[in-house]
Amino acid sequence: MILGKVVGTVWATRKDEQLVGMKLQLVRELGLDGKLKSKFVVAVDSVGAGVGETVLFAQGSSARQTELTRNKPVDAVITAIVDKFDTK
């Protein structure tokens, strides 16, 4: 998983019907120095993360390992809201 920050929300009324009911958040990758990176993903939010929160997100097929995104066309999901992290 990668550290990221929710910077926005993506709305799409016309979309694959399997994505209905999913909250699509715009998540930018966060460096350990706190600087936002240019890489971002549109991730399905399964933990109720709000804009501005530091989160973890999983990518690839692993993103389908939640009740919400099982067998859905999703390859990025927010898995956790980070309380604290430290790196030596």
Binding site: M1, V47, V82, D86
Partner: peptide, 22 residues
Amino acid sequence: VVGKVWATQKCPGLYGKRLLFI
């Protein structure tokens, strides 16, 4: 391993598992 992450609000699948920075 260079660090650790604490997250109380997370997917049920992550409960009880350690999150480490690599």
